[in-house]
C-alpha cells in the first residue's frame, strides 16, 4: 500500500490500532457497569475542553482531559449523593458541554472554522503526532495492567454491583477508576475521531461483542480487537473515498454493530423463545 510509505499514515495507522483497542476494552466495562450515560457526558466534556484548548491556544489534550475528568467527578458523586438519576444529570450536563464547546469555538474569530477546529469536531489523521502515539501506547499498557490486576473486582461489579458489595467488595473506587480511565481514553483518542462522534467507539465494539459471546473473558479479549479492526477499516475507507476519518470509523463501526445484531445467536434465541411463548 502506497499510503503506508508516508510517516503520517504510519502514525495514523498505529494511532487507530491503539485507540480502537483501548476504546473496545474500556467500552466493555462502561457498557456492563451501565455507565453509558456518564461516558456519553464525559466524551462531550472532553470535546468542550478540547474546544477551549483551541480557543485559548492551550494544549487541547490538557484542557480536554481536565473537562472530561471534571465532568466525571461532577457526575459520579452528584449521582451518589444528590440521589438524582444519572440520566437526569446527563441530560443537563450533555447540552451544557456542547454549549460550552460551541461558545469556545466561536470565541476565537480569527480562527473560525479552521482545520484545528474541524479536527476537534470530527477528527483528523494529519494532526496525530509522535507524542500522541507515546501517550496512547502508555495508556494502552496502563489500561491492560489495570484490567489484569483488578479483574476479579471488575468482573464481580459487572455481574451485579449490589451483590459485589454484599460480598464485602468496596465497589466505588473501581467504578470511579473505570469512569476516569474512559475519560482519559476518550481524550487521547479525540484527535482521531473528533468530539462529536467518539462515544460511538466506546459503545459499539463492546455491544457488538456482547451479541456473540457468553464468557466475559472472551468478551474482554474480542471487543478491543473489534475496536481496532473497525478503526483501521474506517481509516482505510476514509483514505479511499477522501472522507473525514472520524465519520468513516463511526460508520464502519455502526455497520459492524448492525450486522452483529442481525447475526446474533443470542438475539435469535430470544426471538425463538418469544415465538414459542
Amino acid at each position: 500500500m502506497i499510503w503506508l510509505e508516508y510517516v503520517i499514515m504510519q502514525r495514523a495507522l498505529i494511532a487507530c490500532i491503539l485507540a480502537g483497542f483501548l476504546m473496545g476494552l474500556i467500552g466493555v466495562f462502561v457498557v456492563r457497569m451501565r455507565l453509558s450515560a456518564i461516558g456519553y457526558s464525559m466524551s462531550h466534556g472532553a470535546f468542550a475542553g478540547a474546544a477551549l484548548g483551541v480557543a485559548t491556544a492551550m494544549d487541547p489534550l490538557v484542557t480536554g482531559l481536565a473537562f472530561a475528568s471534571g465532568t466525571a467527578f461532577l457526575i459520579g458523586p452528584i449521582a451518589d449523593k444528590a440521589r438524582l438519576h444519572v440520566d437526569t444529570i446527563t441530560s443537563i450536563v450533555f447540552p451544557l458541554n456542547m454549549a460550552l464547546a460551541f461558545v469556545f469555538l466561536t470565541l476565537t474569530p480569527e480562527i473560525g472554522l479552521t482545520s484545528q477546529v474541524a479536527n476537534v469536531l470530527w477528527g483528523s489523521i494529519i494532526s496525530v503526532t509522535n507524542n500522541d502515539l507515546v501517550y496512547l501506547a502508555t495508556l494502552f499498557a496502563s489500561a491492560v495492567a489495570i484490567v489484569y490486576f483488578t479483574w476479579k473486582e471488575l468482573f464481580a461489579i459487572m455481574f451485579n454491583r449490589k451483590l459485589a458489595e454484599a460480598d464485602g467488595i468496596r465497589t466505588k473506587p473501581f467504578v470511579y477508576m473505570i469512569i476516569l480511565l474512559s475519560g482519559v481514553v476518550i481524550t487521547f483518542s479525540l484527535k482521531l475521531v473528533g468530539g462529536l462522534l467518539i462515544y460511538a467507539l466506546i459503545f459499539n465494539p463492546a455491544s457488538t461483542t456482547l451479541q456473540f459471546f457468553e464468557d466475559m473473558r472472551t468478551v474482554v479479549i474480542v471487543s478491543p480487537l473489534i475496536g481496532a479492526a473497525t478503526t483501521v477499516s474506517g481509516l482505510l475507507v476514509s483514505l479511499v473515498f477522501d472522507l473525514p476519518v472520524g465519520s468513516c470509523i463511526v460508520i464502519v463501526s455502526t455497520i459492524v454493530f448492525a450486522v452483529a445484531l442481525l447475526l446474533s445467536p443470542k438475539r435469535r434465541r430470544k426471538e425463538e423463545n418469544g415465538n414459542e411463548k
Partner: peptide, 30 residues
C-alpha cells in the same frame, strides 16, 4: 446472602461456576 428474585437474563456472559466463585471474591482480597 441470597437476594430476592435474583434472575440473570439469557445471553449474560457468566457461567454458573463464575457466579459461585464470585461469592468468595470479598474474602480473597485486593
Amino acid at each position: 446472602y441470597v437476594p430476592q428474585d435474583f434472575m440473570v437474563k439469557p445471553g449474560e456472559p457468566y457461567t454458573a461456576f463464575d457466579v459461585v466463585l464470585m461469592g468468595c471474591y470479598g474474602q480473597i482480597g485486593f
